[in-house]
Every structure is written in structure tokens, then in C-alpha cells.
């Protein structure tokens, strides 16, 4: 293992150990609740980053798959007696795989276009999913929504199983993200982001690469949606597939640093609590929207590259200066590690 990956592994283990300890240290419902949403948005942002950050596609249909996962679990609930506690968690795995597979033909269709056209068409996916959720009321309950049985967990630690399940999901999606970025596959995605035509000319099988990233993104997003549905036990179309949630995911990714491993996680941890807090105090009102818009614009204009790349740049410059000042015989690389 190289020095860099070892440092990365230690960092990951540390972060996940802290996250694992959190619900046992803080047992207040509101804290674990907010932490659950933090994790959920981290999963969503890391998944979005696979296609939006690595490949540079503005993918606005992600939240449709969140809703799809939510409805898949809720509808399964209606027809299969899954009520026994932990079983739905495991049902998420086939649901995620199924959604990933279902998304492949859609990816093949959507990825015929790029850039702004792709963004528009992917937004259309979101709207179409919303229309279906509203109108197929035999299946989805329409505007009345769909309910599930209350999970039979101990009230005092009700959130804990959901939190831990979401943490597992985060570990899984981050592993995928890390593995993809390190592998040849990641290089291909970066090549696509740089100049897709040139990448194709150099023999990168651009379509395959994009479709795989796309399917992974959709699968994980769907699993997060299913878990969310089980947690809140009642889903409505306008919450399961909210355009504002979609853009919140993107904002988090940009804030943390798109195209990086930890950026989306950091962005989610910074913004998800704020989102929950403002939604609670401002109640989804006009003020909430204005605050959201202002924050969005601030990030776009003052931190367009995100926290992680900016800080990394700063540190690199700082170290270089330190190395120059020390001007010892040792190469700069030694000190960095």
C-alpha cells in the first residue's frame, strides 16, 4: 500500500469510527435524526458525484430514482408482509440492483446528448417520474401518498437502526467512488469530462464507462430512497421527488468539491443540518426559499470549486513554501507525507 492510500485509509477509518459512535454517544432523537439526514445526503451526493463530478454531466434526474426506490419499498410493503423489523433493510439490496439495471436503458437513451441538453432531458426524467407518481394512483396512492407499517423498533433508540443502515450505505457508495477514481475507469471518466470526443478518439469506450457510472449512481440513490421511505413511513410524490432536494444534492457536491472523494460528504454534513434547521424554523416558507437561493449563489460565486480542492490547494502551496524555506536536502515529497 502506498503512503497516500495508507493515509487515506486511516482517514476513512477514523471518520467512520466517529460516525459509528455518534448515535451511541448522542442519544437525543433530534441529533440522530439530523445525523441520519446528513448521512442520507452524503450518500446521495457521493452517488451524484459519480456522474456529475467525475464525468461532468449535470444529472438532474437523480432524485427521480430516490423516489423510485422509496416507492419500490413502499409498494413491496403493500404486497409482501415484510413488517418484521430488519427485513426491509435487506430488501433494499435487490431493490438497488434492480434500479441500477433498470437505469441502463435510460442511460443509453439520455447519454446520446451532452452538456445543457443532457441537463434539460434529465430534468424531464424528474418531471415524468413525478407525473407518474401522482397519476398512477392505483400503484402509488397518487397525491394521498403511500404508507408503511411503523417499524417495530424501541422508541428510545428508534432512529439508530436507520442511521446505521445509512452508514453502511455510505461506506458502500464511498468504496465504489474511491475504487472508481483510483482505477483505470476513473481515468476514463476524467477523460470524458475533459474532452469527450478526444477521449473517444483515443479509444476510451465512453458509452460503457458513462453507463456504469450512471447505473451505480441510480442504484445507490434508489437504496437511499427506500431507506428514507421506511424511516418516515409515509411518502408523498412531492417530497419523494422534490426538485429542490435535487438541487440541494448538487449544491452540497459543489460546496464540498465536485469530483473529489470526500467533497460531497463534507458538503452534505455542512448543509444537511442547515437544511433541516431552516426547514424547521422557517417551515418551507418563502424565507426558506430565499435563504436557500442566497446560499446557492454564494457557493456558486465564491466557492465554485468547493472546499476540498480549495483547501488542498492552499495546503499544497503552504507546504511548498515551507519546503522552500527549509531548503534542506530532502525532497519536498518526503515532508508532505
Amino acid at each position: 500500500m502506498s503512503r497516500a492510500t495508507k493515509a487515506g485509509a486511516i482517514r476513512a477509518i477514523l471518520v467512520f469510527a466517529l460516525l459509528l459512535a455518534l448515535p451511541f454517544v448522542f442519544t437525543d432523537h433530534w441529533i440522530v435524526n439530523i445525523a441520519f439526514f446528513g448521512l442520507m445526503f452524503a450518500v446521495l451526493a457521493v452517488a451524484w458525484n459519480l456522474i456529475g463530478g467525475y464525468a461532468g454531466y449535470i444529472w438532474l434526474g437523480s432524485i427521480a430514482f430516490f423516489g423510485l426506490g422509496a416507492y419500490a419499498l413502499a409498494i413491496t410493503f403493500q404486497h409482501v408482509p415484510l413488517t418484521s423489523g430488519y427485513l426491509p433493510f435487506f430488501a433494499l439490496i435487490p431493490i438497488g440492483i434492480a434500479i441500477g439495471i433498470v437505469s441502463i436503458p435510460l442511460a443509453l437513451l439520455l447519454l446520446r446528448v451532452r452538456a445543457a441538453t443532457f441537463a434539460v432531458v434529465s430534468l424531464a426524467v424528474l418531471f415524468v417520474a413525478e407525473i407518474f407518481a401522482f397519476n398512477l394512483d392505483g400503484l402509488t396512492g397518487g397525491p394521498q401518498g403511500l404508507g408503511m407499517a411503523l417499524p417495530p423498533f424501541v422508541v428510545t433508540t428508534f432512529e439508530r437502526p436507520f442511521y446505521l443502515a445509512m452508514l453502511v450505505l455510505l461506506a458502500a457508495v464511498m468504496f465504489c467512488s474511491w475504487y472508481l477514481a483510483k482505477s483505470k475507469f476513473g481515468l476514463m471518466l476524467f477523460a470524458i469530462k475533459g474532452d469527450e470526443d478526444r477521449a473517444r478518439g483515443l479509444g476510451v469506450r465512453t458509452t460503457t464507462v458513462k453507463v456504469i457510472a450512471f447505473a451505480l449512481c441510480c442504484g445507490f440513490t434508489g437504496m437511499a430512497g427506500g431507506l428514507w421511505a421506511y424511516y418516515i413511513t409515509w411518502i408523498y410524490p412531492q417530497f419523494a421527488m422534490d426538485p429542490n432536494t435535487m438541487f440541494a444534492i448538487i449544491l452540497m457536491t459543489y460546496l464540498g468539491g465536485k469530483g473529489t472523494l470526500w467533497g460531497p460528504v463534507l458538503g452534505a454534513f455542512l448543509l444537511a443540518p442547515a437544511k433541516e434547521y431552516f426547514a424547521y424554523t422557517l417551515g418551507g416558507s418563502a424565507f426558506y426559499l430565499i435563504a436557500y437561493a442566497a446560499l446557492f449563489l454564494l457557493v456558486m460565486f465564491f466557492l465554485p470549486r468547493g472546499v476540498v480542492p480549495t483547501v488542498a490547494d492552499f495546503l499544497a502551496r503552504h507546504r511548498r513554501r515551507a519546503a522552500v524555506l527549509a531548503s534542506g536536502p530532502r525532497p519536498a515529497g518526503e515532508q508532505v507525507a
Binding site: 461532468g56 449535470i58 418563502a286 426559499l289 436557500y292 446557492f296 449563489l297 456558486m300
Partner: peptide
């Protein structure tokens, strides 16, 4: 200046919800 095609979608979206909020007020 950079990457206008993509960023403008996000920026104009933010403008949209800002105006939506103001109208709601």
C-alpha cells in the same frame, strides 16, 4: 466565465427559487 453552460443552469435555478420565495412573501 468558466463552464458557463453547466454553471448557468445552477445559478439560474437559484435565481428562480429566490424569485419564487420573494413572490411567496
Amino acid at each position: 466565465r468558466r463552464d458557463r453552460e453547466s454553471l448557468s443552469i445552477l445559478v439560474t435555478y437559484a435565481i428562480a427559487i429566490g424569485i419564487e420565495g420573494a413572490l411567496g412573501l
